[in-house]
Computed example of a mutant assay.
Amino acid sequence: MPHVTVEYGPQENPIYQVGRKSFIFFRTPRPDAVDPDTGDRYPDVIVIWVPSESDKLALVQDQESPWFSTTHFDGHSSVLVRAGRLGELRLDELREVVQDAWLSRASATRAERWLAENRL
């Protein structure tokens, strides 16, 4: 995606931004995303912005899918996925979610230009 920069968080976790707005970041382990069997914090959670609450709900409603959320992200336009489960997603599905994340955070001018250039 154009105009993407990568910043790094306090534990060198990558944060992908467009126009200094984050749209994907690799989260550090936190107590709200844990293995239900062991209680261990997931070390590989990725936060991805979504355009709307309805987009978020469409992704997380299937309990078997890799997409999820936690109460920490209630009201936040993002979904979570573990890096270890990305292989369960189709490439076109992952591509669409990443593109939508970028579009939801890019300026209107950048988004319109990218959509026109890609005939979407």
Score class of each variant (00 low, 15 high):
residue 48 I to A: 05
residue 33 A to D: 13
residue 90 R to C: 03
residue 39 G to H: 10
residue 114 W to P: 02
residue 20 R to N: 12
residue 111 A to G: 09
residue 96 E to P: 00
residue 83 A to K: 12
residue 40 D to E: 15
residue 50 V to H: 10
residue 74 D to R: 11
residue 76 H to D: 06
residue 9 G to E: 04
residue 61 Q to N: 10
residue 20 R to Y: 06
residue 64 E to S: 15
residue 120 L to R: 13
residue 119 R to S: 13
residue 74 D to Y: 06
residue 112 E to P: 01
residue 15 I to F: 01
residue 87 G to K: 12
residue 81 V to H: 03
residue 60 V to Y: 05
residue 12 E to S: 12
residue 79 V to K: 03
residue 16 Y to C: 08
residue 75 G to A: 05
residue 112 E to M: 11
residue 71 T to H: 08
residue 5 T to M: 02
residue 117 E to R: 10
residue 56 K to T: 07
residue 87 G to D: 11
residue 62 D to F: 10
residue 45 V to R: 06
residue 12 E to I: 01
residue 64 E to D: 15
residue 113 R to M: 00
residue 56 K to C: 09
residue 8 Y to P: 02
residue 28 T to L: 13
residue 120 L to G: 00
residue 31 P to W: 02
residue 13 N to V: 00
residue 4 V to C: 10
residue 70 T to Q: 02
residue 105 R to K: 14
residue 36 P to L: 10
residue 47 V to S: 15
residue 104 S to C: 11
residue 103 L to Y: 07
residue 56 K to A: 07
residue 2 P to Q: 05
residue 55 D to E: 13
residue 8 Y to G: 02
residue 66 P to R: 04
residue 11 Q to K: 13
residue 93 E to Q: 13
residue 95 R to C: 04
residue 67 W to F: 15
residue 85 R to S: 14
residue 79 V to Y: 04
residue 62 D to E: 12
residue 37 D to R: 14
residue 68 F to A: 06
residue 21 K to Q: 13
residue 118 N to L: 02
residue 80 L to C: 11
residue 8 Y to H: 09
residue 91 L to W: 03
residue 25 F to M: 12
residue 32 D to V: 05
residue 20 R to S: 09
residue 94 L to A: 08
residue 78 S to H: 08
residue 39 G to W: 09
residue 36 P to H: 12
residue 94 L to G: 09
residue 15 I to T: 07
residue 29 P to A: 12
residue 32 D to L: 03
residue 78 S to C: 15
residue 4 V to H: 01
residue 84 G to I: 07
residue 62 D to R: 12
residue 104 S to W: 03
residue 80 L to P: 00
residue 107 S to Q: 03
residue 7 E to Q: 05
residue 109 T to F: 03
residue 40 D to I: 06
residue 59 L to D: 08
residue 11 Q to C: 06
residue 93 E to V: 11
residue 53 E to F: 01
residue 22 S to C: 08
residue 33 A to T: 13
residue 114 W to I: 02
residue 37 D to K: 14
residue 56 K to S: 04
residue 104 S to F: 04
residue 38 T to K: 07
residue 1 M to F: 08
residue 1 M to N: 07
residue 88 E to S: 11
residue 100 D to S: 13
residue 109 T to H: 06
residue 77 S to V: 00
residue 56 K to Y: 05
residue 86 L to M: 14
residue 18 V to E: 00
residue 85 R to F: 08
residue 25 F to Q: 10
residue 91 L to R: 11
residue 58 A to H: 05
residue 119 R to W: 06
residue 74 D to C: 00
residue 112 E to G: 11
residue 63 Q to E: 14
residue 118 N to Q: 10
residue 108 A to D: 10
residue 19 G to K: 01
residue 69 S to A: 12
residue 59 L to A: 07
residue 29 P to M: 11
residue 77 S to H: 14
residue 45 V to I: 15
residue 37 D to E: 15
residue 8 Y to W: 02
residue 73 F to R: 00
residue 105 R to W: 01
residue 58 A to K: 11
residue 110 R to T: 04
residue 22 S to M: 14
residue 69 S to L: 04
residue 60 V to E: 06
residue 84 G to P: 10
residue 2 P to L: 03
residue 91 L to H: 02
residue 41 R to E: 14
